[in-house]
Amino acid sequence: MDNRAIGYMDSGVGGLTAVKQALYQLPNEQVKYVGDTLRMPYGPRRTEEVAKFSLQIGHYLNETADGIKLLVIACNTATAAALPLLQEHLPIPVVGVIQPGVEAALNATDNNVVGVIATQGTVDSNAYYNGLMAGNPGIDVHQLATPDLVTLVESNEQDHDKKLAIVREQLAGLAGSGIDTLILGCTHFPLLMDEIQEVVGDEVTLVNAGAEAINLVEQILDDSDARHGIYPMSNHEVDQYYTTGSVDTFGEIATRWLDIPVSVKHLKTDANDLTLIEGE
């Protein structure tokens, strides 16, 4: 039994897609989440910079308010840049979202033609490509950087037609590829699931890499007997959400997506640390 929270980190609101799956699959586990919206997007940044930010957030989550028992890097770019680093520096299990997404796609595809949409940083890392090829050397992988989809999610745009037009433009590079499976290689993208499915068609299976990571989280909790010992958790008012950007925008998106009231606190960034700003 371990009553500490599970930590989640992302460049913004995208990691909430992993949290949503966790609330469904692990409803008795407390959430502690940092969205680094101020420094978003991570995709165009240098790998070393993303690794530095990720390590800052990991240390903040682990060292404040009783710490955490496990960290989910709910960001594909940060997973590609910093997973081994965080596993080395933190005294807790650290889970990324790429390998669970790879395994789900390998299981889902029938024709061995798989698409990956992600940030430029994730595409450049070839993390999905290498993982898919390692699992099936005969697979045909089509990678596409779609950075405007991250910006679209963070803008909190609600008009379906506007969102659909941007998604259609961003996914034009997959036209005629023959994919039967598409990895949503950024945790922001499931917030556009309806629009993406409409563009690629119902015959294409969408893989939510962030949600798939929760299966691995559950396995680790069970293997280490680390599930939360207070049952049932009647509400999630004890959960903690932090952002380095707009508290109001983050709270609005989180409340709508998670379908629970979400209270958000503000973190200030500097060269080396994150600091909680009281009263905001």
Score class of each variant (00 low, 15 high):
V167G: 09
T181P: 04
N136T: 05
R168Q: 14
T151N: 14
A127S: 15
R168H: 13
P232K: 09
L221Y: 07
A175R: 12
Q170G: 03
T119I: 09
A134R: 11
N215A: 13
Y242T: 07
G201D: 00
D248L: 12
G185D: 11
A145Y: 08
V217D: 10
G201H: 01
E198W: 03
H228T: 06
V141R: 08
Y241H: 12
T122Y: 01
G251Y: 03
T205N: 01
I117F: 07
L192R: 03
G178P: 02
E169M: 10
T244K: 08
L174A: 10
I117R: 10
D194M: 04
M233F: 00
N208M: 02
Q219K: 15
N235E: 05
L149P: 08
P190W: 01
G135E: 08
Y241G: 10
V153I: 13
A127W: 13
L152S: 06
R227E: 13
Y231P: 05
V153M: 09
V153K: 09
A226M: 15
T243V: 12
E218K: 14
G178V: 01
V141P: 08
L184N: 07
L192A: 07
I214N: 04
G138K: 14
H236A: 05
A211E: 02
V167S: 09
N126W: 11
V204F: 06
S177N: 07
E212G: 00
Q120I: 12
K162W: 06
I196E: 03
A254V: 07
G135I: 02
A226F: 05
F189R: 02
I196G: 02
D124R: 15
S125W: 11
Y242S: 10
R227P: 08
N235W: 05
H228A: 06
V247E: 06
Y242F: 15
L191W: 00
D225M: 12
L191I: 04
L184M: 14
L216P: 06
R168F: 06
G251R: 15
L216V: 13
A226E: 15
N235F: 02
A209Q: 14
S224T: 14
A145W: 06
L206K: 04
S224V: 10
S177M: 01
N130Q: 15
I230G: 01
Q240F: 09
K163A: 05
H160N: 10
N215D: 15
H236G: 07
A118C: 11
S177C: 07
D223F: 12
A209V: 00
I196W: 04
D140V: 10
